[in-house]
Design a protein around this nucleic acid. Structure first.
Lengths: 214, 214
DNA sequence: GTCTATAGATTGATAGAC
DNA sequence: GTCTATCAATCTATAGAC
């Protein structure tokens, strides 16, 4: 029992530290010594519990991205279902909200969740192909579903425009997830630190207008 | 004369290769061995001609980002000047076009320019603080100018909204610059490879609608 | 200016004692 | 499961011959 608890503790300590360090420094830049140092565990523990640095990144993604994507998928399918029952196409802002709201709300669960969202925001610009593949393996079904639903919502938009507008929205979301909470004092007295709820509404308003543009 | 030409050739070969490798693999992930290997020059040549890996990145940015930013600044100031002469605020789409058009048009100058634009798109998500600082040193004046002009164009928009909408637009641009030309075959037969001119118009339409949203 | 050779540091991974 | 010690590979940077 103590052994099992100890094992779980060490694994969790490593996952928590890896989340922070991968988010802060990127996959290749993050060293196992930094991670185990911040976790307060021995260097060899990573390879004992996870097997390799790549497998550790995989475990970090698995822990939170699987439930987060399940939630986002359920919310998308709920939007689709309600629209079908009411006999109309899904609304663009409902689709966007189904993706954005769980994402930025999840971030508020604590410092680990905040690091995780930063990590996800960084994932698409990771130079490591391995990291890219691990991430896209999780994300592709969600992208496909969102793409399909936006096609229903915007039936008159040419396929190429739809594809690119979805990319534009992904770029906005990634950047925001990476930058939110990281702005240093800004010279002109602007107020970048909106609360999460306001930020969600600002993003949905911005992206809905962009998606629905003539 | 031959010595000078040879020196310039080696420097240029290194700059060209570094541009490609930094864009492809990120700053920390890119090794001087890969760069000098692709350049076909000796490993020690980097430190002879540039001093350090950091100084090499600085030189890569300097070579194209200084003229590109001068052009974008001139185009922004021209928009501002014309609007003042005509007695109205600058238009949002003109501001966006002044930034986007030179950027994506520059990319068409050749494979080096294409890599450079990818590198710039990647810069904001570089984990290396050094790389960030080098990049922001070039970009901050342009961001400030664009921010000021958007404030003139959207005088009724609260400061916090304006700040975040500018961030959303920066996210869209960075992502597009990184991804453009890099899409593998997509399952559903969408047509992601729009020509540059169409892409510019799509971005301006999308971002203008987002910036001007209620 | 260009090269070889190498210093000196850091990395991911593992063997083997406990 | 956890630890020390270490291997083998990689990295940036430089010294010194040519």
């Amino acid at each position: 029992m103590e052994q099992i608890e100890s094992k779980q503790d060490t694994k969790k300590l490593i996952l928590d530290a890896a989340e922070q360090v991968f988010a802060r420094e990127g996959f290749h830049n993050a060293s196992l010594r930094t991670i185990t140092g911040e976790a307060g565990v021995n260097l060899a523990a990573v390879n004992y519990h996870f097997g390799s640095k790549t497998a550790l990144l995989e475990a970090v993604f698995d822990r939170h991205l699987i439930p987060l994507n399940r939630l986002r998928k359920e919310r998308l399918e709920y939007v689709r279902e309600v629209a079908r029952e009411e006999g109309h196409s899904p609304r663009v802002d409902d689709i966007l909200r189904a993706v954005i709201e769980p994402t930025l709300t999840f971030r508020e669960a604590g410092p680990g969740a905040e690091a995780f969202i930063t990590l996800v925001g960084r994932a698409l610009s990771e130079p490591s192909e391995t990291a890219q593949q691990i991430f896209m393996h999780h994300m592709q079904p969600l992208f496909v579903l969102a793409h399909e639903m936006l096609k229903e919502a915007l039936p008159n938009l040419p396929a190429s425009d739809l594809f690119w507008r979805l990319q534009f929205a992904i770029g906005t979301m990634s950047h925001t997830m990476r930058m939110y909470g990281k702005f240093l004092p800004v010279p002109e007295g602007v107020a970048p630190d909106a609360d999460t709820e306001s930020l969600i509404e600002m993003m949905i308003r911005f992206l809905t207008a962009g998606m629905e543009a003539a």
